[in-house]
């Protein structure tokens, strides 16, 4: 892929957003190829270090997809990850990596179109922001 194109690393819950991504594919919806999907058993399994490693490894944005509140397969993993995202956003903001590069979205298994739209919106947003500061400073 062209270096000027943004890269998104997406951590998707197996029970909802990952299935939605699958549905988007089987429904032949088109969405940008900028996203690299990592299938998780629950959005609550996303440790802050996965997000940090993604950014250091060259991601311009990180997307976490989980179940709508009340729908978590493991009761409340999505509520836990929401706190971690709140913390990470504040932390990254301290070092000037705010700019809304970390997204958390609730996307149900039936919402393939919403997954495609989210990836489209995020790709456009990151395209406008330009490469992440980690990538610009060649920090590994």
């Amino acid at each position: 892929m062209n270096d000027s194109e943004p890269t998104i690393v997406a951590f998707l819950c197996n029970w909802c957003t990952f299935t939605a991504a699958d549905l988007a594919g089987t429904s032949r919806l088109e969405y940008p190829q900028n996203v690299r999907i990592v299938r998780m058993m629950c959005s609550g399994m996303v440790d802050p270090m996965y997000v940090i490693k993604s950014f250091i490894g060259g991601a311009d944005g990180v997307l976490i997809g989980g179940c709508w509140p009340g729908d978590c397969h493991y009761i409340n993993g999505n509520m836990k990850v929401r706190r971690r995202v709140a913390l990470l956003k504040k932390m990254l903001d301290t070092f000037g990596i705010g700019e809304d590069r970390l997204w958390l979205k609730w996307i149900a298994a039936s919402e393939g179109n919403m997954f495609a739209e989210t990836v489209e919106q995020m790709t456009q947003h990151l395209g406008k922001l330009g490469p992440s500061p980690f990538r610009l400073n060649r920090i590994v």
Partner: peptide
């Protein structure tokens, strides 16, 4: 990693370590 970015500072994972520790215990 070196080939991907053209270079890799060793020891690796220094920034990764500090940011992770921050996320885990700064609260």
């Amino acid at each position: 990693w070196a080939e991907k970015h053209g270079q890799l500072t060793m020891p690796a994972d220094t920034l990764f370590y500090h940011l992770t520790r921050m996320a885990h215990m700064s609260t």
